[in-house]
């Protein structure tokens, strides 16, 4: 059944989102190639993102930290060094100014640590009941170094896939906080800026392509990356870094960590280089970095080699992963 109105699934990052973007936005704006970040000159890229999260403050971060690191990461994945950010705020009438102050301080701290400046912004206030506390939109620009431009076209058979750490942490932290699952200790979001890690990766290995593993998680994003190509991907279950607590919560709720959002994780397509993992692990956000699989011509699409030896497809999902009944 075709949807005549926007449903939440249209914002899931999965199949419905793709359909909406290609049928409504890309067609009208005449954009052929959709990417998180876009080049606006030989040396400059730009990216924009909007942030809505409930709750606004969660273990490991808040909407402020998320709105800065998220856009920094989108810029950084193009290979560029993020430099400046502008921010727009839509605030609901009745929102505590002390909470706003806390969010803004968190934005400033995150930007400073990443070496990025927030240079301009805009504020709108909407009537009580017309917003969910606060929404933040940020736009970032970055500068490309020589030879740093990454492209999906550079991916080839034999490339290794590297991730910088455990998968599914952010989504599980949010589910626990939002739905009051009261897990003890509470799972922490991995929310953080990855630009310094990316620059270190670019210096230590031949990096072909990078993507941050946000909405849709690793499985959806790998499908997007090889969507129009002839190669396939096989990742190995025993190599995947997933916290035992995240895996247990997912088992209980019927969720798959490979489809859950992260806010401080990336996947890199790289030529094998022993130095890379050592260099990555020097960064706090990449202590559990691991090679998880490789690009192959043995299959088309994305597959998981399970720990019991079988090969299971990891298709793109249509909508949000939802908890099951039993």
């Amino acid at each position: 059944m075709e949807h005549k109105k926007i449903i939440l699934g249209h914002g899931s990052g999965a199949g419905l989102t793709h359909k909406l973007i290609s049928e409504v936005f890309a067609q009208t704006f005449k954009i052929n190639h959709l990417d998180d970040a876009c080049k606006i000159s030989d040396k400059m890229v730009i990216s924009t993102d909007s942030y809505v999260v409930n709750p606004l403050f969660f273990p490991g971060g808040d909407i402020g930290k998320l709105s800065v690191s998220g856009t920094i990461n989108d810029v950084a994945m193009s290979g560029a060094r993020p430099t400046f950010l502008v921010a727009g705020f839509i605030i609901e009438e009745g929102f505590e100014i002390s909470a706003l102050q806390k969010i803004v301080c968190s934005m400033q701290k995150t930007a400073q640590q990443a070496g990025v400046q927030i240079i301009a912004g805009d504020t709108k206030v909407v009537e009580k009941g017309k917003g969910d506390g606060i929404y933040i939109s940020t736009t970032g620009v970055g500068i490309l170094g020589d030879g740093d431009e990454l492209s999906v076209n550079r991916i080839q058979v034999g490339d290794k896939l590297v991730v910088n750490g455990t998968l599914g942490d952010h989504a599980v932290a949010i589910i626990n906080a939002r739905d009051r699952l009261e897990l003890d200790p509470p799972p922490m979001s991995d929310c953080c800026a990855l630009n310094n890690l990316v620059q270190a990766m670019l210096k230590s290995a031949e990096v072909k392509f990078l993507r941050d593993l946000t909405r849709g998680g690793l499985a959806t994003i790998l499908n997007e990356v090889i969507e129009n190509s002839d190669v396939g991907i096989i990742i190995s279950e025993e190599l995947l870094p997933i916290k035992q607590s995240v895996s247990a919560v997912c088992g209980l709720l019927g969720l798959d960590p490979l489809y859950l959002a992260n806010e401080g994780k990336l996947v890199g397509f790289v030529s094998e280089d022993e130095r890379l993992l050592d260099e990555m692990k020097k960064h706090n956000c990449a202590r559990d970095a691991a090679i998880i699989g490789e690009v192959t011509d043995e299959v088309k699409g994305v597959y998981l080699r399970t720990t019991v030896g079988s090969l299971r497809p990891l298709p793109i999902l249509n909508s949000d992963p939802l908890p099951r009944i039993c």
Binding site: M1, H3, K5, I6, I7, L253, L322, P323, R324, I325
Partner: peptide, 28 residues
């Protein structure tokens, strides 16, 4: 429960109903 949200009836799913203003809440 979450997985009932996408079950189609003759007029659409509960996700559609929510977009049309019905107050549908997902619970565990």
């Amino acid at each position: 429960f979450g997985d009932l949200l996408h079950v189609p009836g003759s007029r659409g799913t509960l996700a559609d109903a929510r977009a049309n203003g019905l107050d549908v809440r997902l619970v565990y």
